[in-house]
Amino acid sequence: MTPKQWQYLVMALLIGSAVILQAVVAARLPLPGPPLGLALVVVIGIGLAGGTTAGAASGFTAGLLLDVMPPAQTTLGISAFVLLMVGALAGRVTDPRGLAPAQLAGLTGALAGLVWLISQGLLWLLGDPVAPWSWLLWFVLGTTLIGSAVIPAVTWSLRRLEPAGRRRRRTKIASAAR
């Protein structure tokens, strides 16, 4: 297998396990607020390492899986749409390796807030029940916390698989299409 194929395989494994762990572990931890956004931080990590298209595609996949798998009951496509946006946005960061931990935390927090607001807005538009406002804070806090541990691990493992000649440059899958 080529390094690129390895990368795709690792991304698929990361997304699959994040989606399962999110429902089985993260959502059942006795914490206040909404379930922790484990899939969300993995998508951010893939976006940072892989670029706009990779981030968007993985966000779409993770979101669709979350929407379709039990026990989700919200309108199909909401998580897919929101995570797609986040993956694409994370992919636009030019120099993800230059991000200081504080900057990374800020970025994760901002994206988590965005996810929460947009998904609640969509739920409201579609007539689904909306969560209390205080959950926005919990979601941002929780996601930022696990993000600072998970995102570096995701980006590191994907960069390890970068083709040798390109590892120096700011390599992104999207740029290969140029």
């Binding site: 779409f60 496509g77 909401i78 579609l126």
Partner: peptide
């Protein structure tokens, strides 16, 4: 500004929401 695959996936997600309604 937005890559075509991203646009397509976004549209798919939106149409899923409408279909689900």
């Amino acid at each position: 500004r937005v890559p075509i695959p991203v646009l397509i996936l976004g549209l798919v997600a939106l149409s899923l929401m409408l279909l689900d309604l």
